[in-house]
Design a protein around this nucleic acid. Structure first.
Lengths: 142, 142
DNA sequence: TATCAATATTTGATATATCAAATAAATATT
DNA sequence: AATATTTATTTGATATATCAAATATTGATA
């Protein structure tokens, strides 16, 4: 029977979780009251103004239900504002507040540092190969 | 501002989730009433008889609290039995039931198929590089 | 031996993931 | 226009993740 440590998917899982924990801890250490996922959602809205929740979910690879709930919390934290979309009343217009923009800016530096730390000692070529490989896996599992 | 799709960690996250969803769907399609995480825990117990919950958590990289709750559900599903450890009454002895062994056996084939599908078209070298890279990330984030 | 410190597990609170069902609004069909 | 279908979002139920606090037990020490 194969050992767990030899399983690629186990290593993938462990790596992404180790990174998430690491990044989340850094956020907390620096007093930022935001989760990685919340940061991701705000960032996606900033990069895609007028995006719907559904598109948002596709963008950050999250379930509609998760998006709904993350947005609720972001509104509660005053990082987001939502209004009913007048063209299609099923949708809502999501706007990042000043406070939301501000925390994204502040956190940005930290995130770049975290990534740098996490990728220390990895060559550009290896990183490219990993990215390509991960993308192949994503394709294969569709 | 960098685009999300260019972010390595985002791709890692997406890849592992795509694989998990894919694998979980296959389990469901075949009528197996077990989650990937439950499968992982049972497998780790089979491979490490007498393992404590804490060691189990380290092995599969899960929080103690998560392990407790997954085990509760496994006991409820009759895949696991637990007794108080007489040497150390804080611990419990975890035993995989006949039914538990049976489902692991049956699911095993499916899991191997899933992995094969997910890794189609990826060279051994690239896979090795990815594994090495992931392990470096894990080290860097400790 | 009574007390203190360390260890293993559980529990509570909160966030996210997933699926299915429910709502609500828009669009198509008759 | 009334009805049916499709689409976007929400809600409920259940599983997992994370942290902190609570429990229970063991081991060490005064």
């Amino acid at each position: 029977m194969e050992k767990l440590k030899d399983i690629t998917f186990y290593t993938m899982d462990k790596a992404i979780r180790t990174y998430r924990n690491f990044a989340q801890k850094k956020l907390k250490e620096n007093g930022y009251k935001i989760t990685i996922d919340q940061w991701l959602i705000i960032k996606a809205i900033l990069e895609n103004p007028g995006i719907s929740q559904q598109e948002l979910g596709e963008k950050v690879f999250k379930d509609n239900a998760s998006v709904t709930r993350i947005i609720e919390l972001l509104v509660k934290s005053d990082y987001l504002e939502r209004e009913v979309n007048q063209n299609d009343r099923r949708k809502s217009n999501l706007k990042v507040t000043t406070e939301g923009k501000s925390i994204i800016d502040k956190v940005q530096t930290l995130v770049l540092e975290n990534r740098k730390t996490a990728l220390t000692g990895i060559s550009f070529e290896d990183l490219e190969i990993m990215n390509r490989t991960l993308k192949t896996i994503i394709e294969n599992c569709h």
